[in-house]
Every structure is written in C-alpha cells, then in structure tokens.
C-alpha cells in the first residue's frame, strides 16, 4: 500500500495539508479518502492546504477542481488555501484558472470563509 495524505478533523471541518510532492496515485487516493471521510464524519467544510507545494500541474489542478465538486455533492464546501504566487501564475498560464474552486490566502482565512458560508448558506457557483 502506498503512503496516504493524512486528513484531520477539526469540528465539522476536514483539514488536508499536503506536505510533499505527491505521486499521481497518492493524489487519486487522497480524493477517494477525502470523499469517504466527508460521508463518515458529516463534515460541512474541507480545507486543502497546498502552501508546501512547489508546483501544481494539470493533474493536481484537476484533482482540486473535482474534489471541490465531489465535496459539494456530498454536502461540504471546499476551500483551497496557501497557493504560492508562482504556482498561481503558472496555473493560469497553463490554462487552469480553477474557476469552480474557492480559494483563500491562508488557513485562517479559509476557515473564516467556511464559517461565513455556513452562516449565510452555501454560495451559489
């Protein structure tokens, strides 16, 4: 079995902090594990911290977009936090603007976003 990315639960939020360069298989495992954890815990929010990632290529970008979509279907909002500026510039030039993914500058703002949308109801996308 390959290494898995840990998923932490804090209140009704699941926190995924990607701390190292992921192989494609680990990216796919993470998506599966996260979907299962949302169902198991009834979490209403997911925060994915990518501040340690030096690059986000189309594979990881697609995973972030589909994870956000899957989570929404399962009743949880996803916020991707901590994207480095060079990564953001590269992603947009690559052709991925992550239009359907909510983002925040850091973990604190990400959790704040989730709290706000929980109070005000989900933001239509």
């Amino acid at each position: 079995m390959s290494e898995r990315v840990p998923i932490l639960k804090i209140g009704d939020v699941l926190l995924v902090s990607i701390q190292f360069d992921l192989e494609d298989q680990m990216v796919m495992d993470l998506q599966e594990d996260l979907s299962q954890r949302i169902v198991d815990t009834g979490a209403h929010g997911v925060v994915i911290d990518i501040s340690a990632l030096e690059i986000v290529d189309s594979f990881v970008g697609r995973m972030l977009a589909s994870t956000a979509a899957i989570s929404r279907v399962l009743g949880a909002e996803t916020v991707v936090v901590g994207m480095r500026p060079a990564v953001a510039m590269t992603l947009v030039e690559l052709g991925l603007s992550l239009g359907g993914v909510r983002t925040a500058l850091n973990l604190e703002q990400g959790i704040g976003e989730l709290r706000r949308s929980r109070r005000n109801g989900p933001v239509p996308r």
Binding site: D24, E54, I55, V56, D57, S58, F59, R84, P85, A86, V87, M89, T90, L91, E93, L94
Partner: peptide, 17 residues
C-alpha cells in the same frame, strides 16, 4: 527566477506524465 523555475518544472511534469 522562482516563477520561471515553477513554470519549467510544471511543464516538465506535464511532459513526463
């Protein structure tokens, strides 16, 4: 530069895959 490093590494990742 950091941005150019990031762009090249990302391109390499796409091509390696």
């Amino acid at each position: 530069s950091l941005v150019d490093q990031t762009k090249l590494v990302t391109a390499a990742s796409e091509l390696a895959r």
